[in-house]
């Protein structure tokens, strides 16, 4: 029966944290409003009641100091989970993330490890406007020393979050705000999904769609529609963006010969560019068409639902992108 138990994406996160805190007394959480209130999205609900104020710490609104707390505590032996309410707020703490957390080990000649997890909530779709809706994962993936994780469903959330906590490096766990209520079967026991390993979310033969977080779900909707038209999409969810499972993506590209990369972040300088580039480096001769990138236009995230619904890619955008790439006919020589 326990196999049938369903949890939301947010609850899966909470259970991962809770189980790791039970298992390891060195794990603690710190962040804004995560104590009695349970976090602004409720993802830390009940943890302070269960583990006490010394292990679930309400902090001042001080993003640099919150991440600094994680850096200092992890480099001296604890396993912190530090929460930045919205992904946009990483910009307030970027020095501690980029110049400190990511680099201390290397700069110290390896004589340090920072087993810390930065958790945050990214993505749009809530009319939260340009400072509370961004998808800034590309910024983080560009920094050697960081690991970046963006789960697309409750099962992945729990397994990936446990791996983040257990990992001996600074990891950034990006929860997608629009997925928090998504419900699915999640095993009760603690389990890990290895960082750096992607997932074939749907096998297919005609075209590869690389999509993560909420876009992976939109891709699934599009794939179901396309299947009616006789187009079988293979959907690759990288799960972890840094390190990126390029092998899985490239193998799929070699099989389907066509690739569409989808993300919610703006197209220019987004992770799609990196993925497309790796595909052309490693599978150029297999491609029947240039890699298609689907992403948001190069503007800040707009506020009004009337604008935002046209800003963020969705199943319809993906459908259009796949249909277009399928129309390219390549005559092989």
């Amino acid at each position: 029966m326990s196999d049938e138990r369903k949890l939301s994406y947010g609850q899966a996160f909470n259970e991962a944290v809770s189980q790791m805190m039970e298992a390891d007394p060195d794990v603690f959480c710190a962040g804004e409003d995560i104590g009695a209130f349970g976090g602004v999205f409720g993802t830390f609900l009940g943890l302070q009641a269960k583990f006490g104020e010394h292990r679930v710490v309400d902090t001042p609104i001080s993003e640099q100091a919150i991440v600094g707390l994680g850096v200092g505590a992890s480099v001296t032996g604890l396993r912190p989970i530090v929460d930045l309410m919205f992904m946009d707020f990483i910009c307030v703490a970027l020095d501690q993330i980029v110049n400190q957390a990511a680099k201390l080990k290397y700069m110290f000649g390896g004589e340090a490890s920072l087993p810390m997890t930065i958790t945050t909530a990214g993505g749009g779709g809530l009319s939260a406007a340009a400072q509370h809706s961004q998808s800034l994962e590309a910024l983080l993936c560009h920094i050697p020393g960081l690991k970046v994780v963006m789960p697309s469903n409750p099962y992945d959330m729990k397994g990936l979050m446990i791996s983040c906590i257990k990992d001996n490096n600074p990891t950034v766990m990006i929860k997608h705000k629009r997925l928090l209520g998504m419900s699915a079967v999640v095993p009760t026991e603690a389990y890990e999904i290895p960082l750096g390993k992607g997932n074939i979310l749907r096998p297919g033969t005609d075209v590869t769609i690389v999509a993560y977080a909420r876009m992976a779900n939109e891709a699934l909707i599009a794939a179901a529609e396309l299947a009616k038209e006789g187009i079988e999409c293979e959907i690759i969810d990288p799960r972890t963006l840094q390190p990126l499972d390029a092998d899985l993506i490239v193998d799929s590209a070699k099989k389907t010969n066509r690739v569409v990369v989808v993300h919610e972040a703006v197209r220019f300088g987004g992770l799609g560019g990196e993925i497309a580039s790796q595909i052309q480096e490693l599978a150029f001769d297999y491609l029947d068409a240039p890699v298609t990138r689907i992403g948001a236009p190069f503007s800040p995230v707009p506020f009004s639902p009337a604008l935002e619904q046209h800003y963020i890619p969705d199943a319809k955008t993906i459908l259009a992108g796949v249909r277009e790439i399928m129309q390219r006919n390549v005559i092989r020589g």
């Binding site: 080990k105 290397y106 390896g110 490890s113 920072l114 257990k166 490096n169 290895p194 960082l195 750096g196």
Partner: peptide, 11 residues
């Protein structure tokens, strides 16, 4: 030494 090898991760 860019990353610490993690016992939990086989990647």
């Amino acid at each position: 030494d860019v990353y610490t090898k993690s016992s939990t991760s086989n990647t």
